[in-house]
Simulated assay, not measured.
Amino acid sequence: MYNLYTHIATNPSRCKRLTCKDTLFTIFNCGLKNKYEDLWSHHNYIVYVVEGRKIWHTAHGSYDLMEGSCVFVRKGACIVEQFFDTEFCFFLFFIPDAFICETLATKSTPIQSTGRAHEPIMPLADSVSIHAFFQSMLPYFDEKCQPDPALLELKFKELILTLADNTANRELLGYFCSLLEEPQSVPLQLIMEANYCYNLKLEEFASLCARSLSAFKRDFVRIYKTAPGKWLLEKRLNHARHLLANRGRTVGEASFECGFENAAHFSRTFRQRFGMAPTSVKQRLLV
């Protein structure tokens, strides 16, 4: 599993890009080789599809993105399914929580909380203004010199304010409100429940939770009354048993979807925890 933000930021030859502070705006022609790619990002990001198709798979559902699709992806992990019959070209706009809060603080009319739950991926309402914004960015990529960072910062803030002004983006507005209410911290439980089934290291979970590793471990034990490694293993095994018994997954599929490195390790750990092989779960539970 790799960090999408770091992967793009450290490989400038792969795509055209514009940068401003910790934000990174790119036109990215995807050249992934595998049918499925595990990836994560410690920043939220917006995807606007110019051409092609990919499916973002999360623990809460799958999102089929095609030409014209525009979504807000909360920081965290996912599995991206690739289709090789056409090139996939898209805009990526990474937005740290602090940048969102800084931008929304300048808004004349405060946004109102919608009270809606925040899914890992939030489809954004289709509008003339959002399409026009991405079209307006194209000339900057054709310039020989990087535009002034102050200009780029204004453009990036324009995108946030454009989305915040559209009341049809109810779920996103609810998420923005939650950031404003707790701008200095990330709810640890929300991050863990949304990402436990991915093969992330503890250091990566700590980064998602905006904490040092030691602070993450300390806060985790305070909230869950157990060590993060033990909690993650238990959650993954229980989720795997559910997939095998109720979703018809194979051992390999359940292993992959629950963040285990390989099926052999998964089978061994599963047997130690439940006293039976994964292949026998469905029959045992149906009896």
Rank of each mutant, 00 (worst) to 15 (best):
L163Y: 12
S108W: 04
P120H: 04
I121V: 15
F88A: 08
C70V: 11
F133Q: 00
R74S: 09
V186N: 06
F176V: 06
K157H: 07
N166G: 11
E81D: 04
E171N: 08
V80M: 09
P149W: 03
N169E: 08
L161T: 11
I100H: 01
T106Q: 09
L179G: 01
L151G: 13
V80K: 02
F83D: 07
F83Y: 15
D165Y: 04
F134S: 04
V128K: 08
I111A: 11
L180M: 11
E181C: 12
F133N: 00
I160E: 00
I79Q: 10
L179W: 05
P123G: 06
D64S: 05
R116P: 02
A132R: 12
Q146A: 12
A164P: 14
G68S: 14
S113A: 15
I160Q: 01
L152G: 01
M66V: 15
T114G: 12
L124Y: 12
F90N: 04
Y196D: 06
L138V: 15
V71C: 12
E171G: 06
L159S: 04
F176R: 11
H131I: 15
T103H: 09
I121Y: 01
I191Y: 06
M137S: 01
F176N: 03
M192P: 00
S185G: 01
E87M: 14
C70R: 06
A132D: 05
Q82P: 00
T162N: 08
V80W: 00
L104G: 02
F176A: 14
A98L: 14
L138D: 03
Q82R: 04
L172I: 10
H131A: 13
K75S: 08
E119A: 14
L172N: 11
A164I: 13
P187H: 07
F133A: 02
P96W: 08
V186R: 14
S127H: 07
I130D: 00
K155F: 13
N169Q: 10
F88Q: 07
G68V: 15
E193T: 05
T114Y: 06
D148I: 10
K155E: 04
F134P: 03
A132N: 05
P147L: 11
D148F: 11
P147E: 10
Y196L: 06
D165G: 01
T109C: 05
V71I: 14
R74A: 08
T114D: 06
L163K: 08
L179I: 09
E67H: 06
S113D: 15
Q82K: 03
C101D: 09
I191H: 05
L151M: 12
L179N: 02
L163Q: 08
T106G: 05
A168R: 15
K155H: 10
A168P: 05
E143L: 13
E158F: 04
D97N: 13
L172V: 13
V80N: 03
T114M: 04
I95S: 00
T106F: 05
I111R: 10
P149I: 08
V128F: 10
L190G: 04
P120M: 07
S136M: 09
F83T: 06
P123K: 13
P147A: 11
C101E: 09
F133P: 00
S185T: 05
F156S: 01
L173S: 03
S178F: 08
L188W: 10
Q82V: 02
A105E: 11
L154Y: 04
H131W: 10
E171S: 12
Y175L: 02
Q135F: 09
L154N: 07
E102Q: 14
E81P: 00
T162P: 02
